[in-house]
């Protein structure tokens, strides 16, 4: 039986791939979104900033920011799931991985946001679940919360067009 890889090697490879995926997108940096990784599970973290405020009187996060945060979490989770097998099998070399050498990102077809309560002026978290991820289309559900995991402030469902495979297949 093959010996399992040392933990540092595994962690380094996964974190490098995740970094390559996130750091290439200016809008993710602009909003201040990071991802927490536990094994293959990702949690999006939106760090609060004054520029994310919609209504200064409450104050509350702008609905567009909430939508964007959920959409980013959906796209990154989907891309991450797409990468995972090739990353683990060694087909993708994490050492040389950059945003340019990664597969293209999925494209949003539609995105529907359900606003449940106003977003408070503090950090927010989101986790996405792939309802179905096919070769060409994917359906993703995302939940966003702040203080309590069970008290969602918004949730969303979206459909995405998967990028064409690198071998030229559609």
């Amino acid at each position: 039986m093959k010996r399992p890889e040392p933990i540092q090697v595994v962690k380094q490879r996964r974190d490098a791939a995740l970094r390559a995926l996130i750091e290439g997108v200016p809008y993710i940096q602009y909003l201040g979104i990071e991802f927490d990784r536990r094994g293959d599970e990702l949690t999006g973290v939106l760090h609060f900033d004054e520029k994310l405020i919609g209504n200064p009187a409450l104050p509350a996060l702008h609905g567009g920011v909430t939508a964007a945060f959920l959409e980013v979490t959906a796209i990154v989770t989907l891309s991450w799931a797409m990468l995972w097998d090739d990353l683990e099998s060694g087909q993708l070399d994490a050492e040389t991985l950059t945003f340019e050498t990664l597969p293209r990102l999925p494209k949003t077809i539609d995105f529907s946001v359900d606003y449940l309560r106003s977003g408070l002026p503090r950090d927010a978290y989101a986790r996405a679940r792939l309802n179905r991820s096919g070769r060409r289309y994917a359906s993703v559900h995302v939940e966003g919360w702040q203080d309590n995991r069970a008290r969602l402030f918004a949730q969303a469902t979206g459909h995405f067009l998967m990028p064409a495979l690198t071998d030229g297949g559609a």
Partner: peptide
């Protein structure tokens, strides 16, 4: 704006920024 780009290979703005504009115009 550069900061709103969702895919640096194409320079296309992220859908999330378009949502913010649509949501504000709706309100």
């Amino acid at each position: 704006a550069e900061a709103l780009v969702g895919d640096p290979r194409t320079g296309v703005i992220h859908g999330g920024a378009v949502s913010a504009l649509m949501d504000t115009s709706g309100g």
